[in-house]
């Protein structure tokens, strides 16, 4: 998988390393900005209120 990506990146080893770094940072950014905020309410730490059922804070 990663070998396949590496072989398909353009340029020499340095350019590829640089592009890889940018790709990794982009993935981390997307995870922190979009994926994790979506997944986090599925964990129980948000339930701090009393309410009918467990609705108001999920």
């Amino acid at each position: 998988m990663y070998g396949w990506i590496w072989r398909h990146l353009p340029g020499n080893a340095w350019v590829r390393a640089l592009i890889s770094l940018v790709l990794v940072l982009a993935v981390v950014f997307v995870l922190f900005q979009y994926v994790f905020p979506w997944a986090e309410p599925l964990l129980p730490f948000n339930d701090v209120t009393v309410d009918e059922g467990s609705g108001a804070t999920r």
């Binding site: 998988m1 990663y2 070998g3 981390v28 995870l31 922190f32 994790f36 997944a39 986090e40 964990l43 730490f45």
Partner: peptide
């Protein structure tokens, strides 16, 4: 085997990142 272990490493890394997100970044 290689693809499977790469997937495992990836999932593990994402889980660690998620822990860092919950404990620290929030």
């Amino acid at each position: 085997v290689r693809t499977f272990s790469e997937l495992c490493l990836t999932v593990g890394t994402v889980i660690l990142l998620f822990v860092a997100y919950v404990l620290w970044w929030t």
